[in-house]
């Protein structure tokens, strides 16, 4: 009697790409409680989809109060950095099949920044450090009538650090940043590097002085967490070391 039903279910599941995954999400709502708690969600999802799709499923079908940031959904805007299975990643670039869907997938806000609600943190200290390194081209003299020319070699010098999307995955993976949040953090240094080593820029010296601060590059302990965390594959620790070397030799 039960056999036909079972057969049907089996046939269906063989054809369907969907699997059941558990999302274990760190929830926090200051209007409800001062404590953050874990909440499990079961969802049927294609393992080739991304963690962000799972979060959408939760928000749209299970619990509309789940709060997280995302904008482009394609790894460009840097909105959805979060701690997935204990590692900082972009939810929109992490496939479910790549992070062992057999076990519950833990999702937490990035560390070291104040949690406002669920997965949303206050990014202000992060952007303050970014603004402090003057992330814009500084030049003197007349503006050229056409573009500012640069040789391919000069462009190559800082190519790696132009890839930053300011998602804060690196800065919020850094144990020195976790401690007191005063350290400039890898992202600010990467963005300073992008201009310090740009042949067209003239404020390299000034930016180096800013990073020579007591909370500047010298607080880096070379743990490589930032390089591991970067969703764009920037060699963050290397960039920091290059800034340190430029500070010591004053050649860049």
């Amino acid at each position: 009697m039960a056999t036909p039903v079972l057969d049907k279910v089996e046939a269906e599941s063989a054809a369907s790409p969907y699997i059941t995954v558990t999302f274990r999400v760190r929830r926090f709502n200051p209007e409800v409680s001062a404590e953050a708690t874990w909440e499990d969600f079961q969802l049927e999802i294609d393992p080739k989809e991304r963690v962000l799709d799972g979060l959408h499923k939760i928000k749209w079908e299970l619990d509309g109060t789940l709060t997280f940031r995302r904008s482009c959904a394609h790894g460009i805007c840097g909105s959805d950095a979060m701690r997935i299975n204990g590692r900082n990643r972009l939810a929109c670039k992490t496939l479910i099949k790549d992070i062992n869907p057999e076990k519950p997938i833990t999702i937490e806000p990035i560390k070291g920044l104040t949690v406002l609600k669920d997965l949303v943190v206050d990014m202000e200290p992060f952007f303050q450090a970014y603004r402090d390194v003057m992330p814009f081209l500084v030049t003197t003299g007349n503006e050229p009538t056409r573009e500012r020319l640069q040789s391919p070699e000069d462009r190559e010098r800082f190519d790696d650090t132009t890839k930053c999307i300011l998602c804060a995955a690196c800065t919020s993976s850094c144990p020195v940043f976790w401690n007191d949040g005063q350290y400039f953090g890898p992202a600010a240094i990467v963005n300073a590097h992008r201009f310090i080593f740009d042949s067209r820029d003239e404020a390299g010296e000034q930016r180096l002085e800013i990073l020579n601060d007591k909370d500047g590059v010298w607080r880096c302990r070379t743990t490589f967490n930032c390089t591991d965390a970067c969703p764009r594959g920037i060699e963050v620790t290397k960039a920091i070391q290059e800034v340190k070397r430029a500070l010591i030799t004053r050649r860049f």
């Binding site: 002085e209 020579n212 007591k214 500047g216 010298w218 340190k244 500070l247 010591i248 004053r250």
Partner: peptide, 11 residues
């Protein structure tokens, strides 16, 4: 200029 700065020397 903070060149010769203490943190750099310590490092």
């Amino acid at each position: 200029s903070t060149r010769g700065n203490f943190e750099m020397a310590a490092w």
